[in-house]
């Protein structure tokens, strides 16, 4: 536990915990909307923000936040209006953002792509005092949205058309999700890096799903898993001198594989219990073991 004596490790661990909470908390709504790769796109766009931060000698974290929020809003607008050409427009936004970042950082006085590496793949020793303040403020915003509006975000992410008929402000909530995802990307940028952020939004959720039947449980397990892997990865990175971002992502994927292996017998047992409960309680359906049976087609 000697690593706790170093100020840079304390900052890195605090950042890691916040990233472990916020990334899956936003990611679960993206996965639910089947937009799992949105975080990756925002990460690309945020590079332009980092580059701008260097060029203008302002904080790259705040600049990345501003640019990725604009990028996320643009992505959401493209989704509304783009229709068939939407994916082409998104591709331009992503790669434009990435190329813009590389270009800007090279234009910055004394800047080179070496500066960019810590933002791309994460770096513990470079999490500064002001970064920690920014990360705390941004993480508080993300948690407020993802927990406070969980029922609304759940409804919109589950079935947008239905959500509109319940009177929810669907467009505003979609924009808010996009902005929150953008903010999360910049929260996670210092720890896991822009190119690996998306993994931390998606993989803990996918891993939690192997065990759960409800959204609430998936949320809780994904966040717990997120914290476990970010803290575990940060500590490992300290002792083994390996890059934190890559360590965290590999740990997350290992957790996914382990949970999937563990869940297979669990799922079988559940299916058996459900089948026996059905044959005992509801004779009308006892001959339909699968989720959809031949009887389903009878009325069409």
């Amino acid at each position: 536990m000697e690593f706790l004596n170093y100020a840079f490790m304390q900052r890195a661990l605090l950042a890691a915990v916040l990233v472990g909470i916020t990334a899956p908390a936003v990611g679960i709504y993206l996965v639910q909307r089947r937009q799992a790769l949105m975080g990756d796109g925002i990460g690309h766009v945020a590079m332009t923000g980092v580059g701008l931060g260097f060029l203008l000698s302002t904080s790259p974290v705040w600049m990345a936040t501003a640019v990725s929020v604009v990028g996320a809003v643009l992505m959401e607008l493209i989704r509304w209006y783009g229709r068939t050409r939407g994916d082409i427009a998104l591709a331009m936004l992503f790669y434009g953002g990435m190329a813009g970042g590389v270009m800007l950082i090279n234009l910055a006085p004394g800047g080179s792509n070496a500066n960019l590496t810590s933002y791309l793949f994460g770096s513990l020793s470079t999490v500064s005092e002001s970064d920690v303040t920014a990360i705390c403020v941004l993480a508080a915003f993300v948690l407020l949205v993802t927990l406070g509006l969980r029922r609304q975000l759940f409804a919109v992410s589950q079935d947008e058309e239905f959500a509109r008929v319940t009177g929810l402000p669907v467009r505003a909530l979609n924009l808010l999700t996009a902005v929150t995802a953008a903010v999360t990307v910049t929260v996670a940028m210092r720890v896991v890096g822009l190119l690996l952020v998306s993994a931390l939004m998606v993989v803990p959720v996918a891993a939690a799903q192997q065990l759960t039947r409800s959204f609430a449980a998936t949320f809780a397990i994904a966040v717990a898993l997120g914290v476990a892997v970010t803290v575990g990865g940060t500590v490992t990175s300290y002792y083994q001198d390996v890059p934190p971002g890559a360590t965290i992502v590999l740990l997350t994927i290992a957790a996914f594989v382990a949970l999937t292996a563990a869940a297979t017998p669990l799922a079988r047992r559940r299916a058996r219990t459900a089948a026996s409960a059905r044959s005992a309680g509801d004779p009308a359906e006892c001959s339909i073991p699968a989720t959809r049976g031949a009887g389903d087609e009878a009325g069409v």
Binding site: Q32, R151, Q158, T166, T218
Partner: peptide, 30 residues
Amino acid sequence: WARVGYVPQRTTAAGGVPATVTEIVSSGRL
């Protein structure tokens, strides 16, 4: 909108994340 109930044409109620029957029905109560 509370005066209107809507049943969209769907083959499934499932999204990208597991959800229970109660969670799905609760969203109609918002």
